[in-house]
Each structure stands twice: as structure tokens, then as C-alpha cells.
Simulated scan of single mutants.
Amino acid sequence: MKQVYFLCTGNSCRSQMAEGFARTLLDSKWQVQSAGVETHGLNPMAVQVMGEVGIDISQQYSKLIDRDYLNTCDVVVTLCGDARDRCPVTPASVQRVHWPLPDPAQATGTDDDKLRAFREVRDEIRQGIEASELFK
């Protein structure tokens, strides 16, 4: 079985949404996990916007990088520069990809403004997974 790991700083938004999409969009040949270089808890707005597209991530939780899983992955996708820069070294057999996405948790303004930021990142993640040749 192939393995993919989605990583961001706190494993609260971007990587959680990526995990939810990958579990839904990729076939059963893929084992999917997400983690962070820190744990910040699951962001309720990430849960909300994923629910809007029919994916329930409410039972997921914020996790630290598991080096054993990381080192046996086929693909590691970092979703922010912090995760890319702080991710432990991996064996040459692990294909590393970087998708530089803004952190929707840092969005300011009204709740509608914040939700818009979450939706934009959510949609970019979905497009990235669907378009990537890595997962074919």
C-alpha cells in the first residue's frame, strides 16, 4: 500500500483538510495521514468548510510528525514553508512536494472573511490532489 503524509505547522487546518480530501478522493491503494511540526488542535472552521463539501473531518485530531511513518512514505506534501523547512530529513525514496498555501487560521476580518480564506485554501488543496500525477 502506498503512503502519503500531508504536513503543515500545527496540523490544525491545511493538512487536516488535505487528509480529508485524500481519504475521499484517492483509491484504497493509499494510506493517508497528516501531521504537524507542532500540534494546535483541529480548527473548527476547517471542519465547517469541509462539511460544506460533504467531508467530515470532525473526528480527526492534531498530531505530531511520526518519523517512522514519514520515513516509509511514498509521498510527503508540505503545505507551508515552516513545515518544509522544519520537516525531518527523509530517505531518498520519499518523494517530497511543496504546495505553499496561506494559513487560513491567520485570516483577519469578519467571520465571513475568515470562512472565505478557509474555502479558498480548501479548494486549492482539492485541486492539488485531483490534478497531481503523484496520486495516479
Score class of each variant (00 low, 15 high):
K2V: 11
Q3E: 13
Q3H: 13
Y5N: 03
L7A: 14
T9E: 10
N11D: 01
N11S: 02
C13H: 07
S15Q: 08
A18I: 13
F21Y: 13
F21K: 03
A22Y: 01
R23I: 00
T24K: 07
T24L: 10
D27Q: 15
S28M: 04
W30E: 09
W30V: 07
V32K: 12
Q33R: 15
S34L: 03
A35R: 03
V37P: 07
E38D: 10
E38K: 12
T39E: 10
H40C: 12
L42F: 02
M50P: 05
E52R: 04
I55P: 01
I55R: 02
D56S: 08
I57T: 05
S58K: 00
Y61A: 10
S62T: 12
K63H: 12
K63L: 00
K63A: 07
K63V: 00
I65V: 14
D66K: 04
Y69L: 08
Y69G: 00
L70K: 00
N71D: 06
N71I: 01
N71T: 02
C73W: 11
V76N: 00
V76A: 08
V77F: 06
T78P: 11
T78E: 10
T78L: 07
T78C: 14
T78Q: 10
L79V: 01
A83R: 01
A83N: 05
R86V: 00
P88I: 07
V89E: 08
V89T: 13
A92M: 12
S93D: 13
S93F: 06
V94M: 13
H98W: 05
W99M: 12
W99C: 05
W99P: 05
P100L: 09
P100N: 03
L101M: 11
P102M: 09
D103I: 06
P104W: 03
A105S: 15
T110P: 12
D112L: 14
K114M: 15
R119G: 06
E120D: 11
R122I: 07
D123N: 03
E124P: 01
I125A: 04
I125R: 01
I125N: 07
R126I: 11
G128C: 10
I129K: 14
I129Q: 09
A131Y: 00
A131Q: 14
S132R: 12
S132W: 05
S132V: 11
K136S: 14
